[in-house]
Design a protein around this nucleic acid. Structure first.
Lengths: 192, 192
DNA sequence: GTATTCCTAGAACGATCGTACAAGAAATAA
DNA sequence: TTATTTCTTGTACGATCGTTCTAGGAATAC
């Protein structure tokens, strides 16, 4: 039982750097050699820490999901109602400092839709995680079906508006549409 | 001035078949040889008709946009108000027979967001075409800013709901959310 | 110290990539 | 018919792909 101990922190560093590289260079351009070059290491180092390329992509996906979801989910948890929660999510997702990250998010998302078996975990969680979070935000008193319906609409609208914003960069128009939508959530929730 | 005439129809046939191949096998898996094999021709034939791979991708993009947009835009033009137009668009985009086509649409969309210069035309039109169509559907009497805001929200919501539907396949929940949204459009349009 | 394991790097493997070239069959104008 | 252009194919080139192998330092347990 001897030998040099495994350096988990090293892998975490490389993974974070790999996500940064994917954010900057695109999810479609991820090959061992360019990534290794961008990270200042050899391809063998990446292989050693991640195994196969498939496993590296999976690791990047997981880390990306952590960044995008966890950064906003805690903001939801602190808000009393759905309207405030939705507004908090929109504020964070529309932050221009995160635009590159969400471009990568949609690049992965689109690719996952054409290879569902390969990206099963991503697809399983990309909606479900937010659904759970936004249903909880409506409290235990809400009708489950009504809560699911509203949460679905909030997720869809925010993502659709984000797509528009990332595409056109027309922040004024998109923000106006977002305000109009968020306003409809203001009355706590009317029972069906 | 002699010689065999150019066969434009042949190129159109190959292009449609290439789009079908992309719909089935994914936008990320488009290489000369597999596509040629799937179409029953040689790679040289594809090169002859499309030039470079980049140009073939561009041609596929254009043809895909024709399929997805033109198939629904005419339905919008025939409707009197925005509510009916939005409902017509949602009915067509949520048609399960078109799901594979829209998976490809989002795959292209996501990839385009990470390479805006390469997919400039796609990004320029993916929102603008629908904006124009849905603003027109609101008639000339509507306030321009209000019309743009509403059209933006309709596009975003439909696309977000479609993303959810393609991801989870939970048609009941997504359809309920769609109905809730479409209901908010029913009163023709209230002035700001 | 030795033994063992981890980390990193370089070289090389076969496979696939986009593309170019040469040549034959097909279709038109003269 | 001949001349010319298009269509199609097979072959081959260099580049890049993911992966494996070999080997030399680095860090721990004994």
């Amino acid at each position: 039982m001897a030998g040099r101990p495994v350096n988990h922190q090293r892998r975490a560093e490389l993974l974070d750097a790999a996500v940064d590289y994917a954010v900057e260079h695109g999810f479609a351009e991820l090959s061992w050699r360019p990534v290794a070059c961008g990270l200042g290491v050899s391809t063998t180092t990446l292989v050693h820490h991640f195994g196969t390329k498939e496993q590296m992509l999976e690791a990047i996906l997981g880390r990306l999901r952590e960044r995008t979801f966890a950064a906003t989910s805690d903001a939801v948890a602190d808000r009393p109602g759905l309207a405030a929660a939705a507004r908090a999510v929109w504020t964070r997702t529309s932050d221009p400092r995160r635009s590159a990250e969400f471009r990568l998010f949609f690049a992965v998302y689109g690719r996952a839709l054409q290879a569902p078996e390969r990206f099963a975990e991503f697809l399983d969680r990309v909606v479900a995680d937010w659904m759970r979070s936004l249903v909880e935000a409506q409290g235990s008193g809400a009708d489950p079906a009504e809560a699911a319906r509203t949460a679905t609409l909030v997720i869809a609208t925010i993502r659709g508006l984000l797509l528009d914003l990332l595409t056109t960069g027309d922040r004024d128009r998109v923000q106006a549409a977002a305000e109009a939508f968020l306003a409809t959530l203001e009355p706590p929730t009317e029972a069906a």
